Amino acid sequence: MENLGFETRAIHAGQEPDPRTGAVIVPIYQTSTYAQDGVGGTRDGDYEYSRTANPTRTALEEQLASLEGARHGLAFASGMAASDAVLRTVLRPGDHLVLGNDAYGGTFRLIDKVLTTWGVTYDVADLSTVDSVRAAVRPATKVIWCETPSNPLLGIADIPALAGVAHEAGARLVVDNTFATPYLQTPLALGADVVVHSTTKYLGGHSDVVGGAVLTNEDELREQLFFLRNSAGAVPGAFDAWLTLRGIKTLAVRMERHCDNAEEIARALLAHPKVSKVYYPGLPEHPGHEVAAKQMRRFGGMISFRHADGEAAALAVSARTSLFVLAESLGGIESLIEHPGRMTHASVSGSLLQVPDDLLRLSVGIEDPRDLIADLHEALA
Results as ranks from 00 to 15, higher is better:
4 L>E: 10
5 G>I: 15
7 E>S: 12
10 A>C: 07
10 A>D: 04
11 I>L: 13
12 H>A: 06
14 G>D: 06
25 I>M: 06
26 V>K: 01
28 I>S: 12
29 Y>Q: 02
34 Y>A: 06
42 T>Q: 03
42 T>A: 09
57 R>N: 09
59 A>S: 04
62 E>Q: 15
65 A>V: 15
66 S>Y: 07
67 L>K: 00
68 E>Y: 02
69 G>Q: 05
69 G>E: 07
71 R>P: 05
71 R>V: 09
72 H>F: 13
73 G>V: 15
76 F>G: 08
78 S>Q: 13
79 G>H: 00
80 M>L: 10
81 A>K: 03
82 A>P: 09
87 L>N: 00
91 L>Q: 04
95 D>R: 03
96 H>A: 12
97 L>M: 05
98 V>H: 05
103 A>Q: 14
106 G>F: 02
109 R>P: 02
114 V>W: 02
115 L>K: 10
115 L>H: 00
120 V>F: 06
121 T>D: 08
121 T>C: 06
125 A>V: 02
128 S>L: 07
128 S>C: 05
131 D>G: 10
132 S>H: 11
136 A>F: 09
136 A>S: 07
140 A>Y: 06
141 T>S: 01
146 C>H: 00
147 E>T: 08
149 P>T: 14
150 S>V: 00
152 P>E: 05
153 L>W: 14
158 D>M: 04
161 A>C: 11
169 A>L: 09
177 N>I: 12
178 T>K: 01
179 F>V: 15
179 F>C: 14
184 L>C: 11
187 P>G: 02
187 P>W: 06
188 L>A: 14
190 L>K: 09
192 A>H: 10
193 D>E: 08
198 S>F: 13
199 T>F: 01
206 H>V: 01
208 D>Q: 12
211 G>V: 09
213 A>W: 10
216 T>I: 07
220 E>V: 09
223 E>T: 05
225 L>A: 12
233 G>W: 00
248 I>N: 05
248 I>W: 01
249 K>W: 03
252 A>G: 05
258 H>A: 11
259 C>M: 11
261 N>Y: 05
261 N>T: 02
268 A>M: 15
269 L>V: 07
269 L>C: 11
270 L>P: 03
272 H>D: 08
274 K>L: 14
277 K>T: 15
280 Y>G: 14
282 G>N: 11
286 H>N: 12
286 H>C: 07
286 H>V: 13
287 P>F: 12
288 G>F: 04
301 G>E: 02
301 G>D: 07
303 I>Q: 07
304 S>K: 11
310 G>E: 04
312 A>I: 14
313 A>M: 10
315 L>W: 08
320 R>V: 10
321 T>S: 12
323 L>D: 01
326 L>K: 13
328 E>N: 10
328 E>H: 04
330 L>S: 13
333 I>G: 02
335 S>E: 08
337 I>C: 01
338 E>R: 00
340 P>E: 01
340 P>A: 00
349 S>V: 10
352 L>T: 14
352 L>C: 03
354 Q>K: 06
361 R>I: 12
364 V>C: 04
366 I>V: 15
371 D>L: 06
371 D>G: 06
373 I>S: 02
374 A>N: 04
376 L>H: 06
380 L>K: 01
381 A>Y: 04
